[in-house]
Computed example of a mutant assay.
Amino acid sequence: MTENILESLAKNVANMEDSNHPPVHLWSPEHCGEINIVIQHDGSWMHDGGLIKREALVRLFSSVLWLEDSQHYLKTPAEKLSITVETTPFLITQMAVKDAGTEQQKILFTSSYGDTVLLGSEHPLHLDKNIIQDQEVPLVMVRYGMMGRLARSVFESVVELGEFVESDKGDYLKVLSDGVVFELS
């Protein structure tokens, strides 16, 4: 049965226009159950306990990720199936910087699925202590309210770009991108 659901999802999504992201925000299917898919902390996708090895299938499914009432779904025009996400649905694995060290500096993040976001007002960066117990986790908004967790190497690069500021409120890291200053304490 779950193989039929996977095939159906793949067909529904494959028939869409070839674009960065399907318009999942325009679709209103009824919740039709759950599928035993888990997005693990390391960004790998599991189905019925086995690793989904086909990168094209993972990218396809990641393009129809949806968050609603704190639950993650795979959503097509015809189906909405709940899935499990261990920490965040996106893992930010790459970073690029344009105009580094200037007022026009722009930081671009890319997820392991190929999503690219410009750190700024639409895609803010913050530290969250609720994702992993007793750890501050750097998160950036990716899409539809879903967050991407910065890989350690990416966050280290952000720290190198930032400026440490000492203040009476406490020390923090100041990072500039797309005209927005982020204060990470």
Results as ranks from 00 to 15, higher is better:
1 M>K: 13
2 T>C: 09
2 T>I: 11
2 T>M: 14
3 E>I: 12
5 I>Q: 15
6 L>R: 14
7 E>A: 15
10 A>I: 10
10 A>L: 13
10 A>Y: 08
11 K>V: 11
14 A>R: 11
15 N>T: 05
16 M>K: 07
16 M>Y: 11
17 E>F: 11
17 E>T: 04
18 D>K: 10
19 S>G: 07
22 P>G: 15
23 P>H: 14
24 V>G: 00
25 H>R: 12
27 W>S: 07
31 H>I: 15
31 H>P: 02
31 H>L: 13
31 H>W: 06
32 C>I: 08
33 G>W: 05
34 E>A: 14
35 I>N: 01
39 I>E: 01
41 H>W: 00
42 D>K: 07
42 D>N: 15
43 G>K: 01
44 S>L: 07
48 D>P: 01
48 D>T: 10
49 G>I: 12
50 G>A: 13
51 L>N: 11
51 L>P: 12
52 I>L: 08
53 K>W: 06
58 V>L: 09
60 L>G: 08
60 L>W: 10
62 S>K: 07
62 S>A: 15
62 S>W: 12
62 S>G: 14
63 S>T: 12
64 V>H: 02
64 V>A: 03
65 L>C: 10
67 L>F: 04
69 D>I: 02
69 D>Y: 07
73 Y>L: 00
75 K>E: 00
76 T>C: 05
76 T>M: 02
79 E>V: 03
80 K>D: 01
81 L>H: 04
82 S>T: 04
83 I>N: 00
83 I>S: 00
84 T>F: 02
84 T>I: 14
89 P>N: 10
89 P>Q: 10
91 L>I: 15
94 Q>D: 15
95 M>Q: 14
95 M>R: 12
96 A>R: 13
99 D>L: 09
100 A>R: 14
100 A>W: 00
101 G>H: 06
102 T>E: 04
104 Q>N: 13
104 Q>C: 03
106 K>G: 01
109 F>Y: 13
110 T>H: 03
113 Y>D: 02
114 G>V: 06
116 T>C: 13
116 T>N: 04
118 L>S: 14
121 S>E: 12
123 H>F: 06
124 P>V: 04
124 P>N: 06
131 I>C: 08
132 I>C: 07
141 M>W: 04
145 G>A: 04
147 M>Q: 11
147 M>W: 05
154 V>N: 04
157 S>L: 11
157 S>I: 02
160 E>A: 14
161 L>I: 03
168 D>L: 10
170 G>I: 07
170 G>F: 11
170 G>R: 12
174 K>E: 12
174 K>M: 09
175 V>C: 03
175 V>P: 05
177 S>T: 08
178 D>W: 05
179 G>E: 05
180 V>H: 03
180 V>F: 01
180 V>A: 05
180 V>I: 09
181 V>E: 08
181 V>C: 03
182 F>Q: 01
182 F>S: 02
182 F>I: 04
183 E>L: 06
183 E>H: 10
183 E>T: 04
183 E>G: 02
